[in-house]
Amino acid sequence: MKFALELSDEFGPSGQEERVAALIKKELSGASLSFVSDPLGSLIAEKIGRSKGPGIILSAHMDEVGFMISHIHEDGTLSFRIIGGIDKRVLPGKTVVIGDGRVKGVIMVPPVHLSKGDDPYEAEDLRMFIGAGCLEEASERVGVGDCAVFATKACRTGERLMGKAWDDRIGCFVLTEILKKNWDINITGIFTVQEEVGLRGIQTALHHVKGEFGFAVEGTTSYEIPAEPEVSPSTWLSKGPAITAMDRASIGSPSLKKLLEEVAKKGNIPFQYKKTATGGTETKFLQQNRTGMQAICLSVPVRYIHSPAGICSEDDVKNTVLLLEKTMRLLEAKLKKVYGG
């Protein structure tokens, strides 16, 4: 799990995922894979099996939500825009890391003694402070267009993992675990870019690959707090991987849904269904690639995604790898019958 923590800590807002890609490539360097990077930056890792036909495609996105510096003010503070979806109400007072220089700073908030009213701070009124007293000082260290992410350091807490980017570095971690194993069929892992800004990376990456079955692996929403019993918690922590029957953009393949359920029940692997249909996943594009393939999304529940820190369960992560591998073994046998090997 140490690698999962490293993944979460790496800098990779949508559009600037190179460091995450490099980290994954390094981790998989001994796993006899061939690597291709597409022009947008998605990393495609292919394991060529003895079986010659199309195999299984797995996708997880490398990018995380973050910020982009939009203006440097005379007093050295920075205005910024949000990349991806972040509730403006989690912004004030949080520490951030900016740009290639890894400049640290904080999103400013006026002292409680001087601020009036209860309205939430608007994102456009908030500024970042990097310890620069004027425009010149700030410009030496950051530039307009630099990206930033929350500065959270990942850690374990009890049996759980806390970190800033489980959506979807935990999916990336699951993929690396699967890709390290031996397979007789072709297995393609796609580590995509720009998912948080409209599912962009997966669309181009899929042009470079072929497959018969697809799995998108996500860190998905969980919100099981007692204050809002009326709101569906979406998923629960520690109750196993979540199967998505439907999200905003796709309906999970019925046959893969059934297969996952059967494998889980037979292997006594806990599983649950994701209970809300909000949020789109890469499943849509896996399903609609060329003539289409059977595809579904399997998720690790994460509390508080798109905030400075999320929490997920180590057991859920392990069970996701287990359920995915066992299901893929059945598909492997099926594909070998058809295509040999």
Binding site: P92, T152, I225, I305
Partner: peptide, 28 residues
């Protein structure tokens, strides 16, 4: 207003890391 999403240390029998719960935008 600064608390949602903020990290904390809890000084119980041992020191625990914690985070103020913040609803994911997907469920707002």
């Amino acid at each position: 207003r600064v608390l949602p999403g903020s990290e904390v240390r809890v000084y119980g029998k041992k020191v625990l890391r914690g985070i103020f719960a913040a609803k994911p935008p997907h469920l707002l």
